[in-house]
Simulated scan of single mutants.
Amino acid sequence: MKLLFGPPATVFLLSALIILSCLASVPYLRLRYSHIPYYRYRSYFWRIPKCDIFQGEWVPDDAAPHYTNETCSHIQEHQNCMKYGRPDLEFLRWRWQPSRCELPRFDADRFLRLVRNKTLAFVGDSLARNHMQSLICLLSKVASPKDMSATWRTRDRIQYYEGYNFTIKIFWSPFLVRTEESADNAGVFKLYVDEPDGSWFSGVAEFDYMILSGANWFTRQSMFYERGQLVGGSYVALNITSNLTLRYSHRMAFRTALRAINDHGNVKAKVIVRTLSPMSHFEGGPWDKGGDCRRTRPYRSNETTMSGLDFDFYMAQVEEFREAEKVAAATGVDMVLMDPTGAMLLRPDGHPSSYGHWPGEKRALYNDCIHWCLPGPVDAWNDMLFQIMSESD
């Protein structure tokens, strides 16, 4: 009672605390700030009184990379920027610095101790593979895996660390849902947006960690099916009337995948939903008309913005995660958000550009402003990943 009806200063302080407490519980979903580089939701870590590791800047760093193309044999050719003669190495001299705390550098020995006797699954497209290969290269300081894949021809791979009984699996599932390439029209995909892709979903009960991601492939020619019926399409002629676009197929794919995980009933994994890697770093034209990414330093957070399809896809991914997170909390599924989108928006300097192949070599993506050089900024994803995985272990 003395607090409620005490001196004016005390009453003011108590009132301010009550108001701040109420504001903290108000959903952030409808707020937008013009001074930040992209539409920002509160990340998973905002609610933990430690730090939001996804808000920050890239700062100069003189530490040597954990690995090079000479010390790691798992760098895919078109991300091997050093091999193909990238002349500048400034893109390696930055580290991600959260605004209010430190993000420890990746520790291969500690990571392998953490994942002993466990299975980590990557589900997604070539950027999921880019992420996985970064992880394997970071771990190469301590141990190298044995390839246990059924065949060299498959895009699904299994890497096994015998001394730790640790398995990494990568599932090629760029749409996350069941997909068929049209028999009549190569390059056109049938997306069954209400059915999860069985390639990864059939084994979900055996995973201890699972990283789900996707974005780029939804820009391809595709037709959308629900309950087996054609309901729309993107960049294809349809014999039905539909106003559904690739934004719909992308959102529904994430919704279907996350709902399927929550409804499974036997998921022990920490499910990590990784938001997209920007698709908009091409300058001077689109990817197929001479666009390139030749910057040699990161942006500051006030020097660029997210817009267009990147913006819409990012919004959809976080919204679908938020809805799924509510159900996961009730059903006992450990589901968290990994949100490196803002950090990577600031790194147009970290792509292979033309240094993923020899000059004059014919490539479908001649200037690559989608994937990331190895080593490079993508290694920060594994700093973030290790932080997330350590939170509950």
Results as ranks from 00 to 15, higher is better:
residue 32 R to Y: 13
residue 62 D to H: 03
residue 41 Y to I: 00
residue 43 S to Y: 01
residue 49 P to L: 06
residue 26 V to T: 11
residue 28 Y to N: 14
residue 43 S to R: 01
residue 53 I to R: 01
residue 57 E to M: 06
residue 30 R to H: 13
residue 41 Y to R: 06
residue 18 I to P: 00
residue 13 L to D: 03
residue 15 S to H: 04
residue 13 L to E: 03
residue 47 R to D: 14
residue 33 Y to Q: 11
residue 23 L to E: 06
residue 12 F to M: 11
residue 43 S to M: 01
residue 15 S to T: 15
residue 22 C to F: 15
residue 23 L to Q: 08
residue 39 Y to L: 13
residue 56 G to N: 01
residue 40 R to H: 09
residue 28 Y to F: 12
residue 38 Y to H: 13
residue 64 A to P: 03
residue 6 G to Q: 10
residue 15 S to I: 10
residue 12 F to K: 13
residue 23 L to K: 05
residue 61 D to M: 02
residue 51 C to N: 03
residue 6 G to R: 09
residue 65 P to E: 06
residue 25 S to E: 11
residue 63 A to S: 15
residue 28 Y to H: 15
residue 16 A to I: 13
residue 16 A to F: 13
residue 51 C to A: 11
residue 22 C to E: 05
residue 64 A to I: 04
residue 37 P to T: 08
residue 38 Y to E: 08
residue 46 W to H: 10
residue 65 P to T: 06
residue 33 Y to N: 13
residue 28 Y to W: 15
residue 38 Y to S: 07
residue 34 S to I: 06
residue 31 L to A: 12
residue 50 K to F: 07
residue 30 R to F: 15
residue 25 S to F: 13
residue 52 D to A: 04
residue 12 F to E: 07
residue 39 Y to S: 09
residue 25 S to P: 00
residue 32 R to F: 10
residue 27 P to E: 10
residue 56 G to H: 03
residue 40 R to K: 11
residue 64 A to D: 14
residue 32 R to G: 11
residue 25 S to H: 10
residue 21 S to L: 11
residue 42 R to F: 11
residue 11 V to D: 00
residue 28 Y to Q: 12
residue 46 W to S: 05
residue 7 P to H: 10
residue 24 A to N: 14
residue 18 I to G: 03
residue 44 Y to W: 06
residue 52 D to T: 06
residue 18 I to K: 04
residue 36 I to P: 00
residue 39 Y to P: 01
residue 53 I to S: 01
residue 50 K to A: 12
residue 16 A to T: 13
residue 48 I to Y: 05
residue 30 R to L: 14
residue 11 V to W: 08
residue 52 D to E: 07
residue 40 R to T: 12
residue 17 L to N: 05
residue 28 Y to C: 08
residue 14 L to E: 07
residue 62 D to T: 12
residue 27 P to N: 11
residue 44 Y to C: 01
residue 37 P to R: 10
residue 50 K to T: 11
residue 9 A to L: 14
residue 16 A to W: 07
residue 63 A to V: 06
residue 60 P to V: 08
residue 18 I to W: 09
residue 11 V to E: 06
residue 48 I to C: 02
residue 52 D to R: 04
residue 34 S to K: 13
residue 27 P to D: 11
residue 35 H to I: 06
residue 43 S to I: 00
residue 23 L to P: 03
residue 25 S to L: 14
residue 43 S to F: 01
residue 15 S to Y: 07
residue 10 T to M: 14
residue 7 P to M: 07
residue 16 A to N: 07
residue 25 S to D: 06
residue 53 I to K: 03
residue 53 I to H: 00
residue 53 I to E: 00
residue 28 Y to G: 09
residue 15 S to R: 09
residue 52 D to H: 05
residue 29 L to W: 14
residue 45 F to Q: 04
residue 41 Y to V: 02
residue 53 I to T: 00
residue 31 L to D: 12
residue 45 F to V: 02
residue 29 L to V: 12
residue 44 Y to Q: 00
